[in-house]
């Protein structure tokens, strides 16, 4: 009997080693350890054994069972690992294939730049104000210290509509409208983004373009504050090492008036084609609000002062993105727009 058991054990272990899959293992288990398995068959013959022999054979049978079970467990683990490995090998993909596309469009570069400008001034406590694009002569010119027949009206060739009204030539009329509504409350800190229109059409002018205007009015606003604000703006908008230069200029609605240059974004001030070899790029006009403009808008020009500035969004977009032809901004070629997303 003992020999029989030994033989069985040997046979079972060999079968387990030979099993090539989890299914084979299972079959082998049933064959040897199952209810009708070989081990049970052998033990069934125990009744014929003597009382002394019985426990010894019983112990031997248990040892054999656990030896087979142990081997079974080990083999199961081995085969599971093998199966897993096989599966992972089968599931290899080409990780370099392009991903599933997500539909995505883009905002116009002019919108991006406008938002950029807005965000800088929102951060400085300005609010956004808006006004009509078709304006009266009063708000577009008269209230801004540009009476009829003023030579400076030539600076802004105007589109007229009926009733003496016109397409606004700048966003400045919103200054007056806003101050009229707000006076005598202080402070006033607004920026005014919007479309403006001038009777010009060539490589560097579009009959419709975009401006962002700014206005700050309070009791103690000075020309040095104007410089500080615009210097900060230039560094935020372009790069922290951008330098500014302030040149006297003339606008009827500000005095002193100033033209602001930044160090060239292309050559960093060394001189290149973009800056006509001067190292400087003109980006905006500004000045202290003219006392007459404050007066017509309802403020006491002896009590309050303020500054105003205005910039062309197209110009800044062109500098920021290196666009060399303004017309691209209005052609809406999708291949162009797709570059801004």
């Amino acid at each position: 009997m003992r020999e029989k058991l030994q033989e069985l054990c040997h046979e079972a272990l060999q079968a387990l080693d030979a099993a090539g899959s989890l299914e084979d293992l299972n079959e082998t288990r049933i064959k040897y350890l199952g209810k009708k398995g070989a081990l049970t068959q052998v033990l069934r013959g125990m009744g014929k054994l003597s009382a002394e022999e019985r426990p010894r054979i019983g112990q031997a049978a248990n040892e054999i069972r656990s030896a087979i079970e142990e081997r079974l467990a080990a083999r199961t683990d081995e085969l599971k690992v093998a199966v897993q490995e096989q599966r992972l090998r089968r599931e290899v993909i080409d990780v370099t294939l392009p991903g599933t596309p997500v539909q995505w469009g883009g905002k116009h570069p002019l919108t991006r730049v406008r938002e950029n400008i807005q965000d800088i001034f929102l951060g400085l406590g300005y609010v956004i104000a808006e006004g009509p694009e078709v304006e009266t002569d009063y708000y577009n010119f008269e209230a801004l210290n540009l009476p009829q027949d003023h030579p400076a009206r030539d600076m802004q060739d105007t589109f007229f509509v009926s009733g003496g009204n016109l397409l606004r030539t700048h966003t400045s009329p919103v200054q007056v409208r806003f101050m009229e509504k707000t006076a005598p409350e202080l402070p006033v800190k607004i920026i005014v983004p919007g479309k403006v229109y001038r009777r010009d059409d060539d490589a560097t002018h579009s009959p419709m373009f975009h401006q962002v205007e700014g206005l700050a009015i309070d009791r103690r606003i000075t020309f040095s504050d104007l410089k500080g604000t615009l210097d900060l703006f230039a560094r935020e908008m372009f790069s922290p090492d951008t330098r500014t230069r302030f040149r006297p200029s003339y606008f009827p609605f500000t005095e002193p008036s100033v033209e602001v240059d930044i160090s060239c974004v292309m050559c960093r001030g060394k001189g290149c084609r973009v800056c006509s070899h001067t190292g400087w790029l003109e980006i905006l006009g500004a000045g202290m609000v003219h006392p007459r403009v404050l007066e017509v808008s309802g403020y006491d020009s002896e009590e309050v002062t303020g500054f105003a500035f205005g910039m062309g969004v197209e110009r800044i977009a062109m500098l920021k993105y290196g666009i060399d032809d303004m017309r691209l901004l209005f052609e809406n070629d999708l291949r162009f727009l797709q570059q801004f997303r």
């Binding site: 001034f121 929102l122 951060g123 400085l124 406590g125 300005y126 609010v127 202080l186 402070p187 800190k189 700050a216 309070d218 009791r219 103690r220 606003i221 000075t222 040095s224 504050d225 410089k227 500080g228 604000t229 210097d231 900060l232």
Partner: peptide, 11 residues
Amino acid sequence: VTLPYGLSTAG
């Protein structure tokens, strides 16, 4: 080069 001071406002 200075920045305006006075009442702060929410942008």
